[in-house]
Nucleic acid binder design. Structure first.
Length: 302
DNA sequence: CCCTGTCAAGTCACG
DNA sequence: CGTGACTTGACAGGG
């Protein structure tokens, strides 16, 4: 078990998700921004290793506009060495990596141009992970997509689209249950069809489910991951208090998290904390999990 | 320096 | 029909 947080670290003195407006695009600006973002990514990873945080989600803003037609810059070649260096740091320290592209990736869209853009965007995410030379346990998580008034047809369309994807996307792609359209059991149905792993989101499941307990859901989603996919990933968050409206909480409630750890035993999972105060909650969570036999401890290799 | 309207992109719920 | 929410607010121009 590894514990992590997404994209941004509030303690280090840099920001790894720097971007800019499309109208101010220039190759120079892109290059400087990427250089900053890569340097900061390494700093955040180093902070994490020092603090036993061995799971991290890399921001989609790492290379702003990478999948956009405006971008003609060969960033993969230009930053090849930096990517390889960060990748080697990740591997030496056994850091688990994920990425979560935005809501604009919709594989089951009926519109061809949206599909094309979605695939271009997924290829960008794949390029980042491939440039770091990470194995197939580094995942890209997406939601199933739209319903378009007919969920079964939309699921069928998702499956057809998935089968047509290039292998280098398929081996990294995983689906996440959402809180509105596609529940955990809908994801299971897709898994049965495709073998695609499911990322379990605890808060989404709380908000939309078919009555499965956490324990049951954990048991079922764990089985959707093969050896080469690595340890099953879960997103964890909770509400402010019982019955409170949705919205990411400001900081982790240690008691709720402790309960979640108990509910997920004996399954090994990597847990991403989707909580506003980022690494601070990750540190709290690691404290809570410290005596849990599942927790992996960092070794600190430069 | 601080404030705030706006930001590349899709879908859906809500008023 | 317009707006907000979503995986993460933050850019950038105006005062």
């Amino acid at each position: 078990m590894k514990i992590g947080y997404p994209c941004i670290n509030l303690t280090v003195d840099c920001r790894g998700n720097q971007t800019f407006r499309l109208k101010s695009y220039s190759e120079k600006k892109l290059s400087l921004t990427v250089e900053n973002n890569l340097n900061c990514l390494l700093k955040m990873l180093q902070f994490n290793v020092k603090n036993n945080i061995l799971f991290f989600r890399i921001t989609s803003d790492l290379i702003p506009f990478a999948p956009h037609p405006v971008c003609k810059f060969d960033w993969l070649t230009h930053f090849k060495d930096q990517f390889a260096y960060i990748g080697s740091y990740v591997k030496k320290n056994s850091i688990r990596i994920s990425m979560h592209p935005g809501q604009y990736i919709v594989l089951n869209t009926p519109i061809q141009s949206i599909l094309d853009n979605s695939i271009a965007d997924l290829l960008y995410h794949v390029d980042v992970l491939d440039a770091m030379e990470l194995d197939t346990s580094a995942k890209i998580q997406v939601h199933v997509g739209g319903v378009y008034g007919n969920k079964e047809m939309s699921i069928t369309r998702f499956c057809a689209r998935y089968r047509d994807l290039p292998e280098k996307i398929r081996r990294r792609l995983i689906i996440e249950n959402d809180d509105r359209s596609y529940s955990f059991s809908n994801c299971l149905e897709i898994h049965e069809e495709l073998g695609i792993p499911i990322l379990f989101d605890s808060l989404h499941h709380e908000l939309k489910n078919e009555g499965e307990s956490i324990q049951n859901a954990i048991a079922m989603f764990s089985r959707t991951w093969k050896i080469q996919d690595g340890v099953p990933m879960a997103d964890y968050s909770h509400r402010r208090k019982k019955g409170a409206p949705y919205g990411h909480v400001d900081t982790l409630n240690s008691n709720y998290f402790k309960l979640f750890l108990e509910q997920t035993k004996p399954y090994d999972i990597d847990i991403m904390l989707e909580i506003k105060d980022k690494e601070r909650s990750a540190l709290k969570a690691i404290k809570v999990a410290w005596n849990d036999k599942r927790l992996i401890k960092a070794e600190n290799v430069d």
